[in-house]
Design a binder for these strands. Structure first.
Lengths: 240, 240
DNA sequence: CCAAAAGTGTTGAGTATACACCCATGA
DNA sequence: TCATGGGTGTATACTCAACACTTTTGG
């Protein structure tokens, strides 16, 4: 299971092991990759970048990069996301670490996967020269992805769905003011199923997460009441 | 937020960046640390090892070690656990990655935390020379730990509790045959609250996870029926 | 026969689901 | 006035929690 005896480093006498270790540069690298989500009228979307160089040039991937010495993982994820999309203020959550030595054919890179959420796909900006293109894809219909990014996508969608059920994470996918219909659309898009409007409204109201804003959203038809989350920080909701 | 401009590596021309990168050994290292749990008559227990060398010598910590090139994260966790406790077959689950640059004062080490479960604290064996001692502690009363291992402990306990509620993970904390009272003790120990025996039995039975064994456990009093999990692999239980 | 752990049902409260019509507005 | 999306209540099924006594065995 654990490559018995293949790498005898840890079994050497302490002094020898430390000397070897100091000289060794053959350590896995650490990277971060961030699955960026937003919801629009078509449903849940993922932002992908087309790699501009390297053995995977031309393939689509999530925003990522190597972690630097002195940098936190969250910091590296924010930097990679900013370089890829210009975004600086997003909800960010660590998902899982992927360390299969063959996930990157060029080197052993352990990647810490993140999920980021924004309220509007239009907020993304220009990508760094590392990428040749960037665009939104329907989360349920992604193209072939570089590395093991398909695994990350599956993991991220599952986590997002789970957290919609027991946290107020939807606030990260909505602007500060929104109608009940918009909130329901976020849930319907992420969960990929329609919700009963009356039951949904009752459930959300029972959680006491929202405050009603004085204004109304005026459109082509009956105006809709506007709401805001009482707390914009994501927290678990007591589900007693 | 993301150390803007402090590390210009990614912004260099590709050729220069690659040359620099090849020479650079200033990358964070990758480690794994495994929180080992078992339940005994006193409750939920964690296995800790006393560090025998290094700046944290004398402090208690979880079994861990650096990840080697070519090794999976799970493989590294299993190897570190085997070196620390002799255990080779445990339930193992990745928890979270901790990457604060100051978590280890001697170097920037990103650690992927794992949780391992065994059915009997007595199964642990001798530790490698890296450690000066190893013993079980009550999970709710751990000593001061090295690095950020207290964070890992909190995270692991939370994960274990959560998964007891919606998976059959308890099978990893029990021998192949057990009485209903023993199963209930595992839940009560991990959740740190007493359970109603009748409601607990009904809930478990409704999940259809157990099969009754032909034998009985004979003790000082009325014999107890023995059960085994139908599936020893941990899986989510449909909670419809 | 006594001590100790094993085993067993019912009731009531609360929660979740299914379901259809009127309202307010702009065009 | 009509088309469109906004807003509302009830009845039922189900789930969860509280609760105490009888059974079986070894000593």
């Amino acid at each position: 299971m654990a490559n018995a005896g293949e790498f005898p480093l840890e079994n050497r006498a302490p002094a020898a092991a430390e000397a070897f270790e100091a000289a060794a540069i053959a350590r896995p690298k650490v990277a971060v990759d961030t699955v960026l989500f937003a919801v629009d009228a078509q449903g849940l979307k993922c932002y992908l970048l087309q790699l501009g160089r390297g053995p995977n040039a031309g393939k689509w991937a999530f925003a990522g990069g190597l972690v630097r010495v002195g940098e936190t993982l969250d910091g590296a994820a924010r930097r990679a996301l900013r370089d890829a999309s210009g975004l600086t203020d997003t909800y960010l959550e660590q998902l899982f670490s992927f360390g299969d030595p063959s996930r990157d054919p060029t080197a052993h890179v352990v990647s810490v996967a993140y999920m980021a959420l924004i309220d509007n796909p239009g907020r993304v900006g220009a990508a760094s020269s590392k990428y040749s293109a960037g665009r939104w894809f329907a989360a349920g219909d992604l193209p072939e992805l570089a590395y093991d990014h398909s695994l990350m996508a599956d993991y991220a969608v599952a986590r997002l769905r789970a957290k919609l059920e027991y946290t107020n994470i939807a606030c990260a996918l909505l602007p500060s003011c929104f109608t009940f219909a918009e909130l329901e659309e976020v849930y319907a898009a992420a969960l990929e199923r329609p919700l009963d409007r009356r039951n949904f409204r009752r459930r959300i109201m029972a959680m006491d997460l929202l405050q009603r804003m004085p204004e109304q959203r005026r459109g082509a038809h009956r105006p809709a009441a506007l709401y805001a989350f009482k707390h914009r920080s994501v927290r678990a909701i007591q589900m007693l």
